[in-house]
């Protein structure tokens, strides 16, 4: 067994284990951390496939952004653990059955001719100096420029939607508006009033 194969089996096992832990463990924070582990192991599997860009991106985006967000939310919300645990046992038999059958079906599909060695020969390893990132970049900005732009649009939409849905100006909060502060003029703040001089009441 070569090193690559050993690495693959190890990381695959860790991924499956971590995934199982995510859905069974009680503590939500621990579950989130196990999900991080699953992602990292998956990234390692991809590294064995020479897809280093994807592996790094997986760690950066999923672990760095998504899971951090998850953990923020989990820690900020007051989650009632026992309520969440309810009903788990109800669905286990059916869900488990469905899951097992799906795995079987996928195995049947994947064991067909189309996925065999002849049709899909193992790709050769690239020479040193091959940069997966560079190749991806080259394709992305020329051949795939159209989907790339659309993907950018989707990100834009995400920002706009998030702001439109959540940005609130509370009427009670007091905040400063520097633009208004700077554009104030003397006449808005000061008003000269002519008043007669006042006499003192007693003459001493």
């Amino acid at each position: 067994m070569s090193f690559i194969q050993l690495a693959f089996y190890f990381f695959a096992a860790v991924t499956v284990f971590a995934a199982a832990m995510v859905i069974t463990i009680r503590n939500p924070v621990k579950a989130a951390l196990f999900l991080v582990l699953a992602f990292v192991s998956a990234a390692c599997v991809w590294l064995t496939l020479e897809a280093e860009f994807l592996a790094i991106v997986l760690v950066l985006v999923y672990v760095g952004a998504v899971m951090v967000l998850f953990l923020f939310v989990v820690m900020m919300l007051d989650i009632n653990l026992s309520r969440l645990r309810e009903g788990f046992g109800e669905y286990l038999p059916i869900g488990g059955l469905v899951a097992v059958l799906m795995v079987l079906e996928m195995a049947i599909v994947l064991s067909t001719d189309d996925f065999s060695e002849q049709r899909l020969p193992r790709p050769e390893a690239h020479t040193e100096g091959y940069s997966n990132t560079k190749e991806l970049g080259r394709l992305l900005y020329t051949f795939y420029v159209y989907p790339f732009e659309i993907a950018a649009l989707i990100l834009l939409v995400a920002i706009i939607a998030a702001i439109a849905l959540t940005l609130r100006k509370r009427p009670e909060t007091k905040y400063q508006n520097p633009a208004k502060q700077v554009s104030v003029r003397r006449d808005d703040r000061v008003r000269l009033v002519k008043m007669g001089a006042e006499r003192k009441r007693d003459e001493s």
Binding site: Y91, G95, V98, L101, M102, E105, I108, V109, T112
Partner: peptide, 22 residues
């Protein structure tokens, strides 16, 4: 929601079983 998702999975699964004939 989980009932809905479950229904979708069941539907997918039934379609697969009915039409996959290895």
């Amino acid at each position: 929601v989980y009932h809905y998702a479950f229904a979708m999975i069941i539907g997918l699964f039934l379609l697969l079983t009915l039409f996959l004939k290895p």
